[in-house]
Each structure stands twice: as structure tokens, then as C-alpha cells.
Simulated scan of single mutants.
Amino acid sequence: MENITFKIYSTIATLPENWDEVAASNHFLQTPYLQVLEDSAPTNMECFYLGIFEKDNLVGVLLSQYLDLNKLKSFGERDIYIKRIVRNFIFKNFASHVLFLGNNMITGQNAYALSKEIEHECLSKLLIDCSNSLILYFKNKGVKIHIVSFKDFYKQNATLFKKNDFKNLYEFNAQPNMIFNLNENWKSKEGYVAAFTKKYRDQYKRAHKKYNGVIEKELSLEDVSLFEDRINELYHYVAKNAPFNTFFLADNHFSTFKEQCRNRFKIFGYFLNDKLVGFHTLLLNGEVLETYFLGYDEEVQKNNMLYLNMLYNMTEFGIENNFKKIIFGRTALEIKSSIGAEPVYMSGFILHTNSFLNKYIGKIFQKLEPDLEWNQRHPFK
């Protein structure tokens, strides 16, 4: 550990030249994506980029995000009124300044990338030290960080972190990440559909029949710029009806993403009678396809089973482009399982900087976490 140090950067322009080489294993720790965050982060978010050095050599990169929840008008409007009021009061007064070590905008293990192995004993201490430095940075600006969250670790990494400097942190498992490990024998959508049981093959046929009249089109950068107001309108409808939100995307987010990341970011529009009625987005991350934000017109969604057809289209894109798995994220668990995704539980770690409140962080967190009841579907023979 004596040879391992870190440095905090607040702008992409100041990053070391070999940053992208070190971040080679994850496109969403590389500078094109980080530039998206810098140019179009949510209005209540501030991003930091941390370089991990062994002596003078950059051997790791880390993303951190600060969220000011005081700037949000709503945390989500789907939960019952009383629960929403209580949750909003607690967040505004005791948890409004949140520091994430990791990416709060993408589901999965995207906090850091390393060009050489660093033992978890060292890495866990390093993450704690990084968070303490950022807490001090904000303290010097007159901002008190309330909550620190170390976000999204797969079970093996979480277990190793827990044995070291994370042992006194509260470990939580939020809603599972729905992941679809694609069968390598599927070469086209026909192979995928043939693997369904009759019940789910009938569901596929019924959804496509309802889909009649909706036209899907991949959008170019020019298209995204042209339709951006409508894209944002559709996005906000879905986002506001989620059970919980800590941010809302900037109005220029999708066009900025497309401009910076080009073919690594795909956005597909859905048109009915020449009107944009829905969209979904995909992140191409090596052999992994990651779903991102989407939006839709509620009436078209109901009448044309638009969301389910989006899920099928994402899956078929993954199969036809030889991806090994698709990350579907944490929402709509049951319907995602009906198309083949399976739940993978990931761990996060959280602490409150108030030592008294931190004693009860587990009980508080459980009260604030949205209720979850769902039945996993098993669609294949």
C-alpha cells in the first residue's frame, strides 16, 4: 500500500494521457463516456475522476459522483402518498448530499478499472481513503456529505471487501440486476423464439401482433437532435413514474451521448403514424450489451405492448451482434424474466457520516427501499 496513491481530477482535460489504456476493460470509464458526464450530467450531479498510481504509473481509474438531492422536485411518484412524503422528508433533511463511489447512472460493477491486480485489502482501504478525501473537499466548500455509497459489486468482490476495510459498513442488496446470458447456439431471433415453451412463444407472437403499425428505426445523431424535445418528454414520463429517482437527465444528454460515443451508443425510435411514440437506448461495452434509459407514450404502450416489444428487440440485437450477455438493470423484474433475463444480486455498501444515524443505517435503508414483490418467470424449455 505504501507505493499506491491516488489523485482526484474534476475535468477530463486534466486526465493522464494513458487513462483510456488503463480503462480498456470498461468503455464507461473511458474518456468519451466521461466527457458525456462532464457535458451533460444531471443538474444535481458533479463528477470526479480518480487516478490510482503505483509510484508514478497509472494502474487504475475510478469514477465518483456527488448528488445534491435538494435540487430534485421529485424522487419518483409511483409509491403511495404517505410513504412518498415520509421518504422525501428524510432525504431532504438527513440524506440530501450523497457521494457515490461508482456510477449511479448505470447498473453493474462500473466503479473502477485496473490495469494490474490490486489486492482487495489494499483496494478497500483505497476506496475509503478516496471517499474521505472527497468528503474533506466538500467540507472545505461548506457542504456536508451525509451519505457515502460504494455502488454495485458482484458477490465475490463484495465478500472480499467485507473481509477488509468495508467490514464496518452496512452491506445492502437492492433490487436484483436482471442479466440475460445469451445462448451461444442462438444465431438469430428464430433460434431464440424456438427455445421458448409454448406459453412464452405465444406471448412473443401476441406481442408482435399488437406491435402492428409501429415502425422501429435506429436514430442518427441528426435524428436525435431533431427529436430531442420529444425524446425528453417520453423519458420524463417513465422516469417520474419510477418508484425512486436520485436524478433526472439533462435535456442535452442523449444528443451529447450520441455525439461523443457514436456507435457505442445506440438509440432506437418507435414511430406510429409518423409520430415518435417511444425510444430505447443501448450501450455497447465489449462483449456486454447494456440497456440504458428509455421512454414511451403510455397509450401506445398499453395498446401495442410497446415495452415488451422493446425488450424483445434489445434481445434480438444482442443475439444478432454476438454479445455474450445483456444487462437489463433493476426495473420491471417480472417482465424481463419472461423474455429470459435472470436476477443477479449485487451488493453495495453505505455509511452515514453522522455516527449516531450510522448505527441505524440498516433499519433506515430498509424503510426507504421500495417494496418488491415479483414472480420470476422461466420461459425456456
Rank of each mutant, 00 (worst) to 15 (best):
F91Q: 12
G329M: 08
L272C: 06
Y66V: 05
F153G: 07
L282D: 12
I319N: 02
F138R: 08
L62T: 08
N3F: 03
S337H: 07
G269D: 03
A23K: 15
Y154F: 13
D165P: 00
L368E: 09
I128A: 04
K240N: 12
V214K: 01
L357K: 14
F28A: 07
I327S: 06
I80L: 07
L289I: 10
L308C: 07
A174N: 10
Y292R: 13
A195M: 06
M105P: 01
I361A: 01
F317Q: 00
K363I: 14
Y33D: 15
L62C: 15
P243N: 12
S131N: 10
Y237A: 00
F138G: 05
D251Q: 13
F257Q: 14
R330D: 01
L69S: 05
F293A: 09
H97C: 03
D152Y: 09
H280K: 05
E121G: 12
E21Y: 01
N57D: 13
N140W: 01
T5M: 00
I52E: 03
Q260L: 05
G318N: 06
Y66I: 03
E46K: 13
N232H: 08
W186I: 08
P16Q: 06
I339E: 05
Y211S: 05
F180W: 12
I335M: 11
T331N: 11
F271N: 03
T107M: 02
L169S: 07
N44A: 08
S25M: 06
K217G: 08
V98R: 03
Q175P: 08
N18P: 01
L58D: 10
S115V: 09
K71Y: 11
L221I: 12
V98L: 13
F254I: 06
D251T: 15
N181T: 10
R230G: 03
S338C: 11
K302T: 07
H352P: 09
Q109C: 12
Y307N: 03
G102R: 04
Y137E: 10
I85S: 02
F265N: 01
L182S: 03
S124F: 07
N285L: 03
N263T: 10
N285V: 02
T281W: 15
T43V: 11
